[in-house]
Each structure stands twice: as C-alpha cells, then as structure tokens.
Simulated scan of single mutants.
Amino acid sequence: MQNTIVFLLLFFTTLISYSQEKVIVTGQLFDSETQETLPFANVSINSFANNALVTGAITDIDGRFEIQEIPLGKYEVYFSFIGYANAQQTLVAGGLNTIFDLGKIELKPSAEALEEVQVIGKQAATNSDLNKKSFSLADNIAQSGGSVLDAMKTILRVAFDQEGKVVLRGSDKVVVLC
C-alpha cells in the first residue's frame, strides 16, 4: 500500500512538471468575396498588454498557418495581406486547451484603388556607342539662353585646347552637331 501511494505521488508530480505550458495556433485565411485562399499572408501574435510582437508566421500555398510554442497568456492575433484590410482576433491561452484552431479567417479586399499610373521615362544625358558618344542638353535648364560653347564647357571630359578646338579624352577628332 505504501509503495502504491509513493508511486502515485511520483506519477502526479511528474505529470504536473511536464504539463503543457505552450499552445499551438492554427487557421486558414480566405478572401471574403471570392472565397479563395490567401497564400503567403502575414499572421502575427502580439502581447495583449503592450502590443509587443511575440511571434508570427506566413501562410502556406493553401492559406493555412500553424504557430507553435506560444506561452500561455492573452494575445492579439493580426492578419494582413497586400491589397486587403487587416483583421485581428483576441486569443486567451489558459492551458486547458493546447491547440487553438481559429478556423476560417476572411479578409476583405481593400477599398483603396489607383485610378491611373503614369510611367515617365527620360533619355540619358550621355549615350555611348562603339564609334560615337552623344551628349544631350535638352533638359539642362542651366544652359537655356547660353551658347553651345558654354554648354559644352559644363560637360565632363570635354575640354578646349589653346586654339579653341574641342578635345574629348585627349582627342581632337570631335564633331559638334547642333
């Protein structure tokens, strides 16, 4: 009888010491309108008291996530995905349940949409080919109203010799087209 009591005492002590103090959170993210899964969305778990990040995960290709090793406590779970409004849920992990399935979480598409996008390209001021180098002064505001000679003095690697000839990298074989 005494051996049975000692055995039960040791058994329950071991059971209490190895009890779960960590929980697992799972769920799946969907688009609220099309019901399609949202792969590679962000899931973050923040402390409820100070909103500090505890841990997080990214959903897989099927929109599922599983976050393990979360200490017991009260948390805010945030869900975010580009082009969708953020969502959040409160989670209280008390220790009785070690697996929390948040189920189907739906994110609504964001109402912000761009009306138009303008892509403006500019030609480079300096273009190089095998046999020539071109300089464009069309967008040079500082040279408006000046002469071509004044404009050429501002271009790097362009110099003038004593006779007034244009010299580019030490060569006087330069043609100026206006």
Rank of each mutant, 00 (worst) to 15 (best):
Glu36Ser: 15
Ser19Arg: 15
Glu112Gln: 08
Phe160Gln: 03
Thr90Leu: 08
Leu107Met: 03
Val23Ala: 09
Asp60Arg: 10
Val25Gly: 02
Phe7Tyr: 15
Ser44Arg: 15
Ser147Cys: 05
Ile16Glu: 09
Gln28Met: 08
Glu76Phe: 13
Leu102His: 06
Val175Cys: 06
Ala87Asp: 14
Glu69Asn: 14
Ile45Val: 07
Thr98Arg: 14
Glu33Tyr: 13
Ser128Phe: 06
Lys165Cys: 01
Phe48Met: 11
Gln28Cys: 01
Met1Trp: 13
Gln2Gly: 11
Val117Trp: 01
Tyr78Lys: 14
Glu163Met: 05
Gly164Asp: 02
Thr4Tyr: 13
Gly103Pro: 11
Lys132Val: 00
Lys22Pro: 01
Glu66Asp: 10
Arg64Lys: 14
Leu114Tyr: 07
Glu116Thr: 12
Gly145Asn: 08
Leu9Phe: 11
Lys153Tyr: 01
Gln162Val: 12
Asn46Val: 15
Phe48Asn: 15
Leu91Ile: 00
Glu112Tyr: 14
Asp60Cys: 01
Leu107Phe: 04
Leu38Gly: 02
Ser44Trp: 00
Gln118Leu: 08
Ala49His: 15
Lys173Leu: 13
Tyr75Thr: 03
Tyr84Asn: 02
Ile61Gly: 10
Leu156Gly: 12
Ala111Tyr: 12
Ala124His: 07
Phe48Arg: 15
Tyr75Lys: 01
Gly103Asp: 00
Ile82Ala: 12
Ile45Gln: 04
Phe11Gln: 06
Asp129His: 05
Gly103Val: 01
Ser47Val: 02
Gly94Ser: 15
